[in-house]
Amino acid sequence: MRLEILSLALIVGPCTWAFRFFPTKADLSGIKPDGILARFLASTGPAAIATLFVASALPMLKGGVPLPLVIGTLAVLAVYGASRSVVAATLAGSVGYGLAVWLL
């Protein structure tokens, strides 16, 4: 393993671990249920996942919304609505997208 790649991993890996671990030790006992910080933290999850969905789908836009992206997204929505299963919805979206690329 080249030294530069190992060095990069050994800088970024521990920093990422620190970002994930140390905040779990934050003392949250003093946070009021209706306080600003409580509402901020409760919204962090939906905001983060919505952001990551957009960030992962954006590179697929090429001057418009490609039909496979629409079909894949609809497949996720339909299968999740019918089954309430994250597994089934994820697989359906991927299969729907792949089939659309193949057929169109």
Partner: peptide, 20 residues
């Protein structure tokens, strides 16, 4: 292509699971 859509599909499904 199908593998490339796996991550957006997973995020969308996770988003639906916590949607209110």
């Amino acid at each position: 292509a199908a593998l490339g859509f796996m991550l957006p599909a997973l995020f969308l499904a996770l988003l639906l699971s916590i949607l209110s």
